[in-house]
Design a binder for these strands. Structure first.
Ligand code: SF4
Length: 292
DNA sequence: GTCCGGTTGG
DNA sequence: CCAACCGGAC
C-alpha cells in the first residue's frame, strides 16, 4: 500500500474528532515528562500509570531531580507498577541525561538508544511525541492496525525488517504530518482496532483494510503466554512488596515468612534482587537501597 | 486460572 | 535469537 493521501486524511480526520485528551500528548508537556510516561507505560496500562506519573513529575520535574533521588525513594514511588528494574533504569537514564546532555533529553534516535531503558519503541515515541519529528512508532497497537490493513489478524511475536519497512512506507515524509500519523494510528488501535472485537463498523480505515475485506480470518498462531504463578518472577515480586511496605530493615526470617515462600524459591529470588540493586543488606536486615 | 507488553542480557 | 522481567484486570 504505502503512504497515500486518502488513507492519511481518513485516519487524521477520525483522530481530530475522536482522540482522547491525553496529557502526555499535549505540546506543553516536557520531553522528559513524556519519556517518564512512556517508560511507565511500557508494560503497564496507562490508566494505572496516571497517578504515579503525576506524583513522580511533581516530585522530580527534571532529570537532575530524579538523578539526585535514592534508589529507595524511586522504588517506593514506582510502587506497584511492576518490573521495578525499570524504575532504576529510569533513574540511571536521568543521571545520564543530566551528566551528558546538560539535562536536555537528546532528540536523535541513536543518542536516545544509548540511554538506559530506552529501546526502539520509546526512542521513536520520543521523537514523535516529544519532538514532533518523523519516526516510525511500532508498538502493540500500531503493529496490530498495520498488520490488519495488510490482511493478517495479528502481528508476529518478533518484529522483522519487512514489517518495519512496510510501516515506514505508510508514514508521511513531513515531520508535522508524520507524528500525527503515529499518534492517530496508536489511538485507533487503542479505541477501535482493538485486539479483541475490533469496531470495524466505526473504523475510518475499513475501505483500506485487507483483513476486513477478507472477512476477518483468524490468525493461525496463538500468542504464547508467559506463565507467572510459581516462577522466580513471582517470588521477586513478593519480596519487593514486603520491602516496599517495611518501615525498617527486615530480618531474613521475617522476610521469608512475610513473602510466604519456600526457601528453595526465596533464596535465589533474594540473591537476584541484591544483584539488581533492588534490595540491600544492612544492619538489622534487608531493605530498599539508600536513604529515604 | 488467562491475558497483556518494550527492553535487556544471555 | 529468545527467555526473563511484574502486577492487576478479567
Ligand atoms: S476495519 Fe477493522 S480490522 Fe481493519 S483497521 Fe479498521 S478496525 Fe481494524
Amino acid at each position: 500500500m504505502g503512504h497515500t493521501w486518502p488513507v492519511f486524511f481518513r485516519l487524521l480526520r477520525w483522530y481530530a474528532a475522536n482522540s482522547r485528551p491525553l496529557p502526555w500528548r499535549e505540546p506543553t508537556t516536557s520531553a522528559w515528562a513524556v519519556l517518564v510516561c512512556e517508560v511507565m507505560s511500557q508494560q503497564t496500562p496507562v490508566a494505572r500509570v496516571m497517578p504515579s506519573w503525576h506524583e513522580w513529575m511533581e516530585r522530580w520535574p527534571e532529570p537532575a531531580d530524579l538523578a539526585a533521588a535514592s534508589p529507595a525513594e524511586v522504588i517506593l514511588a514506582w510502587g506497584n507498577l511492576g518490573y521495578p528494574r525499570r524504575a532504576l533504569r529510569l533513574r540511571e537514564c536521568a543521571a545520564a541525561v543530566a551528566a551528558d546532555w546538560n539535562g536536555v533529553l537528546p532528540s536523535s534516535r541513536d543518542d536516545l538508544l544509548t540511554l538506559p531503558g530506552i529501546g526502539p519503541y520509546t526512542a521513536d515515541a520520543i521523537i514523535a511525541f516529544s519532538y514532533h519529528k518523523r519516526s516510525v512508532v511500532l508498538d502493540t497497537n500500531t503493529r496490530r492496525v498495520l498488520c490488519r490493513l495488510y490482511g493478517t489478524a495479528a502481528p508476529p511475536s518478533h518484529l522483522r525488517k519487512d514489517e518495519i519497512a512496510r510501516a515506514d512506507a505508510m508514514v508521511p515524509l513531513e515531520d508535522d504530518l508524520a507524528w500525527q500519523w503515529n499518534a492517530a494510528l496508536m489511538e485507533l488501535g487503542a479505541l477501535v482496532c482493538t485486539a479483541k472485537n475490533p469496531a470495524c463498523q466505526e473504523c475510518p480505515l475499513r475501505p483500506d483494510c485487507a483483513w476486513f475485506a477478507a472477512g476477518k480470518p483468524e490468525s493461525g498462531t496463538p500468542r504464547r503466554v508467559q506463565r507467572f504463578t510459581g516462577t522466580h518472577r513471582e517470588a521477586r515480586g513478593k519480596i519487593m512488596a514486603v520491602l516496599r511496605g517495611a518501615k525498617s530493615p527486615v530480618s531474613r526470617d521475617e522476610l521469608v515468612a512475610a513473602a510466604s515462600l519456600a526457601p528453595s524459591r526465596f533464596d535465589p529470588a533474594l540473591d537476584s534482587l541484591l544483584d539488581d540493586g533492588l534490595a540491600c543488606l544492612r544492619s538489622g536486615g534487608y531493605a530498599l537501597p539508600g536513604e529515604l
